[in-house]
Design a protein around this nucleic acid. Sequence first.
DNA 1: TTAATATTTGCATATTTGCGCAAATATAGT
DNA 2: ACTATATTTGCGCAAATATGCAAATATTAA
Lengths: 99, 99
Amino acid sequence: MNISDVQELADLLKALGEVNRLSLVCRLCECSTPQNAMCLCECCSVDASGVSRHLKMLAQEGVVSVEKRGRERSYSLNRAYVADRLRVLADKIEMKEEI
Amino acid sequence: MNISDVQELADLLKALGEVNRLSLVCRLCECSTPQNAMCLCECCSVDASGVSRHLKMLAQEGVVSVEKRGRERSYSLNRAYVADRLRVLADKIEMKEEI
DNA sequence: TTAATATTTGCATATTTGCGCAAATATAGT
DNA sequence: ACTATATTTGCGCAAATATGCAAATATTAA
């Protein structure tokens, strides 16, 4: 794993490693359909602007996808991508891959 | 997953989500024997005091274990614990567990 | 004891981060 | 056009974080 890979993975983990952002992710976990930001506000203790910023960061890191729907934005979790990155690290940590 | 679980997991991810700390973890990944801090200094761009602080934080989060060995401290990765926490999240994200 | 090595800690500093508020923007409905 | 709703952005602030340096501490070896 080279430096830029490590940096990239660190950025993803940092995005997930804030309690309100992780709450948003957990909330999206449990939703089978995309959710708008107003609805997501309820699950964490920040106002709409804060949620907007957190979701923007999660989108930049590929954690969520956004779809414009009229005046709303619908957010959904990139389940496969995030789960895969976490498992790649878990496997590396357990030496289940080549050095 | 309740709030304190989310907080705890966020703390772990935050500990891993800093590039120098993740470099330390990756370095420890590749070591079959415990390593001292001086040796670990080489893999990241901070001085000994910075490495000391990063390792302390990783130890507090349960990522690494420390063993005193004379004037050195030997660090080793808690592979099973960290990999398990990452997989629990990955499974949740892919809905491979109960809501 | 003295010197050397490994690590931690205090301090100062620079940077980043998370936050709320208010204003701006975008879009929908009337 | 006007109003309401959803979201973003600029701003300022306070707290957290990362860092290096120098001093302190711990332990080993001579």
